[in-house]
Design a binder for these strands. Structure first.
Lengths: 113, 113
DNA sequence: GTTTTATATAGTAAAAACACTATATTCTCT
DNA sequence: AGAGAATATAGTGTTTTTACTATATAAAAC
């Protein structure tokens, strides 16, 4: 399979870079993955993923600001959800890559440390 | 279309985070995209993408260390190429997302600045 | 052997990201 | 009104990233 040849536009590159960089944090990947099956409250994330509550809020704020998650308030709770399919696609992409690597179909070597 | 439900393993998350974060830089996305149709020398990248040579080398070093690109030497030249299909897939993913967003099929709003 | 060309590396100042503690805000319930 | 729960925000020290200039290295050409 050959790679898509669509040219990526300069404006989009800025956005994409921002999103990729933001997703490039283990905790945030975990959060995004956890949100994959539907909206969750801050508390759920905090308890389920065993992260400090302010850390969770901070990650969610960053991801909200960058268009990765959306939220809605219900009383004192905030429900967060993935904002768009781009995020789903990247998750798919990662899960897929993981499979291929596990299979030995791909290799994925890091050279340092 | 529903998202892939494969669970992402903790070890893989570390790698994925590293790669995504590394790709989350406009210059590096441009370089990776430029490498999409085959290996290129540092000088080609430098001239074609109009980036300072040490910047290019620096980006390439980071990407090499993180398993995103590979290289081979030929005389005084170094040819760099994408290291594996994970990178291709992410590129595809981005190009795809760009299309959908351009179409208006998705929205992608950034909330800040 | 000296000069050019191509690339890498060092050094560094500025900016951004991170992790964590403490505190504020806002609802809800009584 | 007061207490408790859920979440956000402030403040801060530390680490990482980034951008850039200057310099080193190594092969090629003359």
């Amino acid at each position: 399979m050959v790679s898509n040849q669509t040219k990526i536009s300069p404006e989009f590159i800025q956005n994409a870079a921002r999103v990729l960089k933001t997703l490039g944090h283990p905790d945030r990947i975990k959060i995004v993955e956890y949100l994959d099956d539907g909206e969750k409250t801050v508390g759920q994330i905090h308890r389920e993923l065993e992260m400090l509550q302010p850390i969770v809020s901070q990650h969610l704020k960053v991801m909200f600001d960058r268009g990765i998650v959306i939220n809605r308030q219900e009383g004192t709770r905030f429900f967060y959800a993935l904002a768009n399919e781009f995020i789903f696609k990247i998750l798919d992409c990662m899960a897929d890559a993981q499979e291929k690597i596990r299979n030995g179909a791909w290799t994925f070597e890091s050279q340092e440390n």
